[in-house]
Design a binder for these strands. Structure first.
Lengths: 223, 223
DNA sequence: TGCGCTGAGACGTCGGATGTCTCAGCTCAT
DNA sequence: ATGAGCTGAGACATCCGACGTCTCAGCGCA
């Protein structure tokens, strides 16, 4: 195995074993390199790789730190990976989302706060009846994120965030400008919100399913 | 932005835009470095990072290639990330799995082949009534993987694979040697298989839910 | 007391040298 | 003619040392 890969494993081991705690600072590159028995260049490759997936946080002029290791942070790397997929697998991602999002919405029904409900309502009101596509996409993203956050499961939240990342979402919405898609989306959002207000988990789940299924159907027909 | 990060973005762009196709070979390091306007050392950091998340495949003495970009391959990186999470977030991962796995099992009910059903049955038979913990863990992993593969959604499959990776799973099962957990697990597996044979998606979903919920409950009580 | 400067320390980048590995193509015996 | 085995070119692996840039703490001055 290459020394760099060994270094990655060793650093991973130090973190998993607890020798390096979240937020803690690593020895400086030259020291860590000699500790692990490799050159600074090779060590840097390992550090760079771990920093891409948000395990390490490198600050020039300061030092290298272990991140908080929040699920939110780590799963952020997922969206990077998702970006590489082309349209042919988008349907599969969407299918997964169709499983997760309704479940998350249902979970949120019993936990979401009044303030959060009000905030979501205000957001929908602000959008108006004839938003631009860009506004709608941004609003859609915020709306669902807001709900999923209230599910109380940060892993679930990050996962959905990654799955329905800007790229995927934007690609789906593009070309959807015509039709009654906009008004239907707005209507579905209001229905979801109403179900949440009623604390009706099953209704919320159903509306969320319908909401995503309609996108899925449209996408399937155009592909 | 650091030159290495720029390089990562540029390589990513080349792949996403289609300039570099899956399986294709990259220019040699020195050429690519000068193309992108940075040193070979810095470029190597970028390449190493992309290779950690399975975007690139570096073969010494040969060259650097774009991987197949299969969802399966890319989401493999997920398990690497999951490894970093400690017990306090395992419950959240498990909750997500409790959402996905029953859905996948239900999907499989209508698609799984007779051969696959037979193979799963044979696997359970081979295990016997008193397997060791290690055998049970391996069997459990295989059993669920086999079913989820029959869901026909490779993203879903890889995602579940990552979520219930060896580490998490092993950690959960450790200490579960006593009790009636083993026999109950075997019984639940048989029930899931029977539901699949009946092509009864809802029964399969329910058994899968029960199966995971029991692990979740046990874990919650010991944490 | 507070602002601003300054220097030590840490990461960022580079160029070059050398080792190791892979693969294609050649040689040669069968 | 064919196959094994050798060999050399090419590509990645690793290291070294040097210099640039940035951050932050601490000093000095108003």
């Amino acid at each position: 195995m290459a020394v760099t890969d060994e270094a990655i494993e060793k650093i991973k081991g130090m973190i998993v074993s607890g020798a390096l705690r979240p937020g803690e600072r690593l020895p400086k590159e030259s020291e860590l390199a000699s500790e692990l028995g490799l050159s600074r260049n090779s060590l840097r490759e390992a550090v760079r790789a771990l920093s891409l997936i948000r395990i390490l946080d490198v600050r020039q002029g300061d030092g290298t730190y272990v991140t908080s290791l929040d699920p939110q942070l780590l799963l952020e790397a997922l969206s990077f990976v998702v970006d590489f997929h082309r349209d042919d697998t988008v349907l599969e991602f969407l299918a997964v989302r169709r499983i997760l999002e309704p479940a998350a919405t249902a979970m949120a029904a019993s936990r979401i706060s009044e303030q959060q409900l009000d905030a979501l309502g205000a957001q929908l009101d602000k959008l108006g009846a004839n938003p631009s596509v860009e506004e709608l996409v941004a609003s859609d993203l915020d709306f669902h994120r807001g709900i999923v956050q209230s599910s109380g499961n940060s892993v679930l939240c990050s996962l959905l965030d990654g799955l329905s990342g800007p790229t995927t979402r934007a690609r789906i919405w593009r070309g959807l400008t015509q039709e009654d898609a906009v008004s239907r989306t707005l209507h579905e959002h209001r229905a979801i919100l109403a179900a949440l207000r009623d604390r009706d988990g099953e209704a919320a789940r159903s509306w969320a399913t319908v909401h995503i299924a309609s996108v899925e159907q449209w996408l399937r027909s155009t592909l």
